[in-house]
Write a protein that binds this DNA or RNA. Structure first.
Lengths: 199, 199, 199, 199
DNA sequence: TATGAATGAGTATTCATTCAT
DNA sequence: TATGAATGAATACTCATTCAT
């Protein structure tokens, strides 16, 4: 019961429920893969009826695309947290790198989900396009690094994938073998990366 | 059940047809993901009847597990091609690194397939165990590198995932953007890796 | 259950809203057939909420049965408008015949709805019985015609269906081909009928 | 087992099964209307599995459209049986008229089905177009009748619908009241029609 | 009353698997 | 073996009906 109740006496579409559905889906995909989820399982895991799922999402494809977009958004939103352009480059780079790592650790299910989606028939071209645009700031960062001769003069994609790939793979393997990643692990890993890409 | 069963209890196999089926499956998974394939589509793509598929593989799970194992085997088999323990470490390492890269490029579908499988309900624990054993030689290599002080004194998994992750991600992104990887790209990428992990 | 229940056990009705619901249903059935309507569509077309529909009608079956009855009633009410037993038979017959035609033209949706209902699982036996009783006056009319030797001495049903069938079919086809029916068309059609049934 | 078996050892799509499915559908629609049928009921009534239905028809819409077309075809095929252009007009007309009546009697389910379809969302425009073309020969017949001054000089549609409408309605009501239509009934009905439309 | 979100049984459709040929 | 039609359980999705507000 909030102030809104006076204006709109009818229960509006529950924002919280969308979150529940997303969480349930991520959980299930992490456990059984994209090929192993059904709409009724998602509903059950989200503790709602199957029909309710379809109030919030037109169909399975839509659900997955919207979740994908939400994952992308939430990840990108975090990447530059604490970063300022005026920082010394390495310091700023380290912050972004750490954010990348931390996101993968804290939201492993999202990472798994996004990976699985890439080759799925669910993700539409539109969604893929959107995604590409979102990573743009990372390209900018690398570019800056090259401009001030802090990074090797190589293709952006190469520098970026090397930075990201190492993180992804390490987190993945760590999760699979149920190994916690310590502060020190993170530092070591950063050094591997930095030594590789620094000019 | 005939007399033959006692001599050859294993399902008889037209090697060529098995290959056809595997190829068809890989192609379809690359295009539509693991969640987008059906047994009848595989059969059609392999130019055989659905029923015939079941002569070669007991069921879908078996087919996928066997293909997974075959992918792992064929990749591992290539990793140490041209490598000799007596080589100078960096040279030997470069050969293995190149094999890894080349495999991902030449058999991208296999890489995609294996990635997709990891979180699928198809892959059995047995298959996962087997896989882990197969990568053992790579651990050995890294260990040797550390022993002779050629590589940083870090956790094997960390060194390895950093080596592999960069390759995987770079090949993936290149394929997605339909970008050819040149000899020079490969060399640059190797340097990124080597500068990162060398002692 | 409140004190009101004892006084007014029938569902209270906003007459206007009932009319809205009926009109919406007729419209939808004319456009998509009986198999193409849903309660929520009816509600939307009647500009009320789904839940409200259930305040006015216990369920779908009831709604359709009551609409059916209402259609029957409204049609029968019109048939003898302007007719008096003392008129010369042909004149009276022409008036009734014209009323039949006019009703089909003016309330085509009702005709379509009633046609569709006949083989539907919605209409109950009770409703069907009621309907039969209502057409009784038409039988009476035909009977009179035969008694005074104005009409052929044939089975009532045959005379009546011939009279009605021609009208129905003609209006139907005209509506389908978006053809207006003129005064003259009506006159010609009446002559066809009269020449057929007159003694 | 026929000669074909030697050439095509695999069971081909069973022509007979299509007929079974059609028959089952007609039966169910007659009993419960178009709105009362489900694919699984059709399958059960046709004594096949639900999945099998989809081997023969892509989906419900297709099934209904194809059945509709088949009904139209089979009816039109019968209309001119025994008719020759050289016959005296009334005799030829009577044959066609009788065929119309007989078809409605013998294949009442088809008539009911076609009636129900007209306002359903299943029937596509293409199917409707096809249908219109098929009735063309009847227009021709009426035209001839007018040319030789045997029939009233009225609009084709009017003459035709009056001829057809009377038959339809009479058969419908007879079936509903479980009344058999005798030879004599048919003759009387024909006279009603002929007296109405003759010049 | 009126609302429309929520429910879950029911419906269309798919797909792994079997089986007659 | 090889085939592909047949099967029916499982899945995506719908819709009559209920219920909290």
């Amino acid at each position: 019961m909030n102030i809104y109740s006076f204006i709109c006496p009818v229960k509006p579409r529950d924002q919280h429920k969308t979150a529940q559905i997303f969480a349930a889906t991520l959980l299930l995909v992490r456990e059984n893969g994209l090929s192993g989820i059904t709409m009724s399982e998602i509903a059950k895991a989200a503790k709602i009826a199957t029909g309710t799922l379809y109030i919030y999402f037109e169909n399975k494809e839509t659900l997955i695309n919207e979740l994908f977009t939400e994952c992308r958004k939430s990840s990108v939103a975090i990447y530059f947290e604490g970063y300022h352009a005026e920082m010394p480059f390495k310091e700023g780079f380290r912050i972004v790198w750490n954010n990348l790592l931390q996101f993968r650790i804290d939201h492993f299910e999202k990472a798994v989900f996004m990976d699985q989606c890439y080759h799925s028939p669910f993700i539409t071209e539109t969604t893929k396009e959107l995604t590409k645009k979102m990573i743009h700031p990372l390209f900018k960062l690398v570019e800056t690094g090259k401009a001030i001769k802090a990074l090797k003069e190589l293709d952006n994609l190469m520098l970026l994938t090397y930075m990201v790939g190492g993180i992804n793979e390490y987190v993945k393997r760590s999760k699979y073998s149920a190994k916690k990643i310590t502060k020190q692990d993170a530092m070591h890993l950063f050094n591997l990366c930095w030594d590789g890409i620094k000019a």
